[in-house]
Nucleic acid binder design. Structure first.
Lengths: 339, 339
DNA sequence: ATGAAAGCGCTAACAG
DNA sequence: CTGTTAGCGCTTTCAT
């Protein structure tokens, strides 16, 4: 149980004042070469490393080399991609990332938000549990730099990086309609999440563009997780007049839907076609290879981190909204309607 | 840009000294009911929340409600399960989790380890990049509570939660041998990771138990990621005398192997059989449903967090080693060898 | 039961 | 260029 050396000990060892050590640590220009060398040798000798805690406590302006990342659901591979994008940029800046997963639970989101705020992180990247989240808006108003990813925040001028969900969903459903499907169900996510309603809008837009009338009974909302895909798909397939195609609202829902379809021994696309929002690199290895709307997750994370570092450096720059495009990847889970 | 209230302001508002506010905050027994109420009202009124940074700086003994979690690869669903187990327990303790992903890179591991250490977290849960990792051993020796998951640490008396990798691998390969396979390849992970060599041992043990001689050319090591599964499987299938079955060393490798097999239009299990280490809840939705060795990831995380909180409370308890069992889940990716 | 005062490890004025 | 001094926000003796 060795107690780590502190700055004062380094100062003593180098025969200088604590202030000078601090200057060396922060690469201040006004230190004599000779002195700097002596201090550096003392740092080496004592294996000294500054306490990040003390530094964050004292420093107000200069960033503390730590950002917070609040993820809605770490089980969702899409967010994992976002995380990787953020991490890579942060690492390139020598900046730590405090990542917390709130598992689509507002209560947990608030818990971690409090922690992150009181840890005095330099900035926050998050996907709000809901667009009118009082707590998140409070945090934004408190002045800490925030970048929203995947979902925006109502009435808040904040940086955000999102995708064009409506276009992505429309493309997916138009693809199904083009293949002759008419009874197309949509297994949607949590209703309060903006991306859910945007994707629903895209679903309706595709019907409208084709001059078709959607059946409201074919749209179901769940909790955006695996089990909702599994259970809602079962409900839909149990309908007297079941859908011939499914459009699933995210990654996890897609996987849940696949589980139900396979457990029932149904064939895709002959018995039911499937197109999912969110691609996964192993979608080709699913049965059958999945047709999906691909979001640039890594890019979203990268851009969000860039925006955050920019804002930390220049707090008064006007908020930016980056909208990235989705791509429909056609594989083999749709096919022509054979009924 | 509102500056949050501090303890001094609360003291002033309540007409007491800072020390008393601190006592209320820490639920000290010796505060008059009347005083406590006044302080609590002031806290409410000012929306005061203590600074975790200042608290961690000052406090030595009492835990600071923050643990660190260092994950080898957040893209691997197995570690995601571990993360969830840790998080759930931490949340139940009102404790924050600082999670960092080092992406199987020793350099990143050291970077985050430094950060976590200098953040003065109460304890650390990690899967060391290598069993003889100097830096990790240094951290352990420095006295901060550490629990290793998935992989141990050489020559260090430290709590750990692992699975019986050798038995898991042996069961998988025996299953293949039982189905008539003889040319069974093993796409292994990073050689320096203990689980890699333990699984390799299991692979050899199965051959030995069956009185068979393994072909060294059929064992390949990669970086434990998706691309290594993809590329090494391609190499193996290009052999003059290719394997009839594949045993993949983890989740990501399995997915990579599937990609190669599907791209080549080969059938599983007729052309090549496949059993993977690590199950995924959507393994049933793969083509074909995957036979896999299942590890209790969530349970590993849960137990590790329990061990850590125990150790924080009782630093001198002797180190515990928890070994959990794996389960072979037989689905349809093996089948009888038809060649 | 409460307050005064010292100090955790560091940074930032201000002198010199 | 370098040292002295005063805190950041909190906890913790030691008095009272």
């Amino acid at each position: 149980m060795t107690v780590p050396a502190n700055l004062k000990q380094v100062a003593r060892a180098a025969g200088v004042s604590p202030a000078t050590v601090s200057r060396v640590l922060n690469a201040a220009p006004n230190v004599a070469r000779e002195t700097r060398l002596r201090v550096e040798r003392a740092i080496e000798g004592l294996q000294y490393q500054p306490s990040r805690v003390a530094r964050r406590l004292r420093t107000q302006d200069r960033p503390g080399q730590m950002i917070g990342l609040l993820v809605p659901d770490i089980q969702n591979p899409f967010y994992v991609e976002v995380v990787r994008g953020v991490e890579d940029r942060a690492y390139a800046h020598g900046c730590g990332v405090m990542m917390c997963n709130f598992a689509q639970t507002e209560e947990k989101e608030h818990f971690f938000l409090d922690i992150l705020r009181h840890e005095r992180v330099d900035g926050l990247i998050l996907a709000p549990a809901r667009p009118d989240d009082r707590k998140v808006m409070e945090v934004v108003r408190s002045g800490i730099p925030v970048v929203c990813v995947d979902r925006g925040l109502k009435d808040a001028d904040v940086d955000m990086v999102v995708v064009d969900n409506m276009e992505g969903a429309r493309a997916a459903v138009e693809h199904l309609i083009g293949l002759g499907h008419r009874r197309i169900a949509h297994v949607a996510g949590l209703p309060q999440i903006p991306s859910t309603s945007e994707r629903l809008d895209g679903y309706y837009a595709a019907f409208e563009a084709a001059g078709l009338t959607p059946d409201a009974a074919l749209v179901r909302h769940g909790n955006s997780k695996h089990e909702s895909g599994r259970d809602l798909t079962a409900e839909l397939l149990d309908l007297p007049e079941p859908p011939t195609a499914l459009f699933t609202g995210n990654n996890l829902i897609t996987l849940g839907a696949l589980e139900t379809i396979h457990r029932r021994g149904l064939r895709i696309p002959q018995d039911v076609a499937l197109v999912g929002f969110d691609d996964m690199y192993w979608a080709i290895s699913l049965n059958p290879p999945l047709t999906a709307v691909s979001q640039p997750g890594y890019e979203i994370g990268r851009r969000a981190a860039d925006l955050l570092f920019q804002r930390v450096a220049e707090p008064d720059r006007p908020p930016a909204k980056v909208v990235l495009k989705t791509t429909l990847i056609v594989r083999q889970s749709c096919g022509a309607n054979s009924r």
